[in-house]
């Protein structure tokens, strides 16, 4: 085997079989590089998801004993405002008087509160339109046309049960997962 090819024209010297073997090897090697490259993407994407400390800090306890009827407090849940409101009998009545079927996001007050605690309304203080904080939780703030919350950014009106009644918001104020750990303490998240 003294053949030495001096120029770079492998196509002319490889046999039919050789070409196939070469193609297979090249494709395998390039595919392996591609798989490796894709594998690298996973941690690079994953690192931007919430880190362990952020996920662990996603539960909050709120003491509701000091809330008078008609008052609300603002707490913080997942770095976002949380409204906890004790409804007056009149507000409960107003909420129940509304026909559920006519609403944009049909839910009754009972759907949005815990059994035995229908006067405690727990919602995120985040407008479902574009995320502003609605007014109405603090003393003296505008409560909107329906006596609940009003978002000043784009004029969404929520009723006493925190349901969307007028304006661009698509859904009711979100009720996060929570439970009563005692009669006066709720744990959110």
């Amino acid at each position: 085997m003294a053949d030495t090819t001096a120029t770079a024209t492998p196509e002319t010297t490889t046999t039919e079989d050789g070409i196939r073997r070469r193609d297979f090897l090249d494709i395998a090697a390039v595919s392996a590089a591609g798989i490796g490259g894709l594998a690298v993407v996973y941690p690079l994407v994953s690192q931007m998801a919430p880190s362990k400390d952020v996920l662990a800090a996603s539960s909050t306890e709120v003491d509701i004993s000091a809330i008078e009827p008609g008052q609300a407090i603002k707490a913080v849940f997942r770095k976002q405002p949380l409204f906890v409101k004790r409804l007056t009998p009149a507000e409960i009545e107003a909420a129940n008087a509304t026909a559920t079927g006519s609403l944009r996001d049909p839910q009754s007050l009972a759907d949005r509160t815990k059994e035995g605690h229908e006067d405690i309304l727990v919602t995120m203080g985040v407008c479902t339109h574009l995320g502003c904080v609605p007014l109405g939780a603090a003393e003296g703030e505008v409560k909107g046309e329906f006596g609940g919350y009003f978002c000043p950014c784009h004029g969404s009106h929520y009723d006493t049960a925190g349901r969307i009644r007028k304006g661009p918001a698509p859904t009711n104020l979100e009720v996060p997962e929570y439970e009563f750990t005692s009669d006066t303490v709720i744990q959110v998240g």
């Binding site: 941690p43 362990k52 400390d53």
Partner: peptide, 13 residues
């Protein structure tokens, strides 16, 4: 240390 402990794959980065 936050990167090493809590960030997803932070230790690897």
């Amino acid at each position: 240390e936050h990167i090493m402990r809590d960030v997803n794959w932070g230790w690897l980065m």
